[in-house]
């Protein structure tokens, strides 16, 4: 009995310092240095950073949404469906209303309405998922499996599965703006999202509530937390973030389609777990998730610079890295326990 207690104490003290974050940082630096050494003229260049900054915001933002759901002990498999549906609604609106060849000044109000429309579709999608989970007590994995089908289904239904193109030029021009000719708008949006969600989780009451409810919803109820509202708000945020990701995808592709980014769902779950979000809820930080996003982006962009290596190795590496990290963490925790026992012997 005593041994388990010592081991628990040691683990407790360590988790307070968050060894996972440190490990991720080491991994990030390692991958960065490795790629820089292997491809000195390609990897650590402005052009390559610029292209990386264009790639990851869309799935990065969705990963953050999924991470939030996972912290509350759920999961949101509907992010991609929400992103596409909200982008399609915006695209349909723009294509249907903006007169051809209208001057930019005239287009701007339409763009604002389109963005607001898409964000409210995202919010509505999140509200539906959140209601199913919190009010109807459907397990999150099934509820969002259902909403993913539903939202994608609606998106296919209203477009007959065809891509929605012919957006006003101004949209993609704004969407692809670069600050200082280097930092893309999409990266700025990701940065703002990551920082504000990070602050929400670590510095606000609501963030603490999310962690606590994710740890033990029953105890949360007895502590006076309103679980229904916490779950609802979490999925609303996730839905809102998904629609932001959808708008970014729409700007990059200059169109919207029901099946864009289909493999993103599982990749985002993968990123969240790699970034240290506990799949059982209650633990994990946005810092960790961001590092996981960067690690994978460095890896895939770096590998892209080897001509003989296919782009699809990215999947191999993602899966491989995830499993290695899991195995490594497991071995480490076993060793830690053994060491704790040995230490108490001396």
């Amino acid at each position: 009995m005593t041994t388990t207690k010592t081991a628990a104490t040691v683990r407790g003290v360590r988790s307070a310092r968050d060894p996972n974050l440190l490990r991720l940082l080491v991994m990030l630096v390692f991958v960065f240095v490795l790629m820089t050494v292997l491809r000195p003229n390609q990897f650590a260049t402005i052009a390559s950073f610029n292209s990386m900054m264009r790639q990851f915001p869309e799935y990065g933002i969705m990963s953050i949404g999924i991470s939030l759901a996972m912290i509350t002990g759920g999961i949101d498999l509907g992010v991609v469906g929400t992103a596409n549906l909200s982008a399609i609604v915006a695209a349909k609106f723009l294509i249907g209303t903006v007169p051809r060849g209208a001057p930019p000044a005239q287009v701007v109000p339409y763009l604002i309405i389109a963005v607001l429309l898409s964000l409210s579709v995202g919010l509505a999608c999140g509200t539906i998922a959140g209601t199913l989970i919190s009010r109807f007590n459907i397990p999150a994995i099934l509820a969002t499996l259902g909403t993913q089908q539903l939202f994608t289904g609606i998106a296919i239904g209203i477009t007959n599965g065809r891509p929605q193109s012919g957006l006003p030029l101004l949209y993609s021009r704004i969407g692809n703006t670069e600050f200082f000719r280097f930092v893309p708008l999409s990266f700025m949006i990701f940065f703002i999202v990551a920082v504000s969600v990070g602050i929400m989780l670590s510095r606000t009451r609501f963030g603490t509530f999310m962690y606590m409810m994710g740890t033990n919803p029953r105890a949360a109820r007895y502590a006076g937390l309103n679980n229904t509202s916490i779950i609802l708000r979490t999925y609303m945020i996730s839905g809102l973030l998904s629609s932001v990701a959808g708008l970014i995808m729409m700007a990059r592709a200059n169109s919207a389609k029901a099946d864009y980014g289909a493999p993103y769902t599982l990749q985002c779950v993968l990123i969240a777990v790699l970034g240290g979000i506990d799949p059982n809820g209650g633990f994990g930080t946005i810092g960790g998730v961001t590092m996981a996003i960067l690690i994978l982006q460095f890896l895939s962009s770096g590998l892209n610079m080897f001509n003989n290596i296919s782009n699809f190795y990215r999947d191999v590496i993602w899966g491989g890295v995830l499993i290695l990290v899991l195995v490594f963490n497991k071995l480490l925790s076993w060793r830690e326990e053994r060491r704790a026992v040995r230490k108490s012997m001396n």
Binding site: A16, R205, M212, T215, N216, R218, A220, A223, G282
Partner: peptide
């Protein structure tokens, strides 16, 4: 199962009802 959030810190467990 009802009283405490076992894996969370003492501080969080103690302050949860006064966060408002």
């Amino acid at each position: 199962t009802e009283g405490l959030f076992q894996p969370q810190t003492v501080e969080r467990n103690l302050s949860i009802t006064v966060l408002d």
